[in-house]
């Protein structure tokens, strides 16, 4: 049986994925989108609107801040930077996820027995 990537499952973690992509450097929309495409081998059919909703949500809650880049030619790029609160949230989400994964594995193991 061929494994498939569940977009629905992934979508629930959009905020964490965005936060994670900002840990090392500030990025703008296309970079974040491209990073996700590359890391999933283009298997994740992510809609960009999902990402924009996530940026707005994260910014409103103070996990990221945004600013305009100083591009001289073409349209300006809007960059996102993670805040300390955002880093904390990212770590929390990550350990939550790992913990949940463990439990899901436990549950599935029970089923297979």
């Amino acid at each position: 049986m061929e494994p498939k990537l569940s977009s629905d499952l992934l979508r629930g973690h959009t905020d964490t994925i965005v936060l994670g992509s900002l840990l090392g450097q500030d990025r703008y929309g296309f970079e974040i989108y491209n990073r996700i495409l590359e890391r999933t081998g283009e298997r994740y059919e992510l809609k960009e609107t999902t990402l924009y909703s996530s940026y707005k949500r994260l910014e409103r809650d103070g996990y990221i801040i945004s600013y305009w880049g100083d591009e001289t030619q073409g349209a300006r790029r809007r960059y996102y930077r993670i805040t300390d609160k955002g880093r904390e949230q990212y770590l929390q989400n990550k350990i939550d996820l790992e913990f949940t994964q463990k439990i899901i594995n436990e549950l599935l193991k029970e089923d297979e027995r």
Partner: peptide
């Protein structure tokens, strides 16, 4: 809309 434009163009 400006943000969207630059990202779409890059894509």
């Amino acid at each position: 809309m400006e943000e969207l434009e630059s990202n779409l163009n890059d894509r």
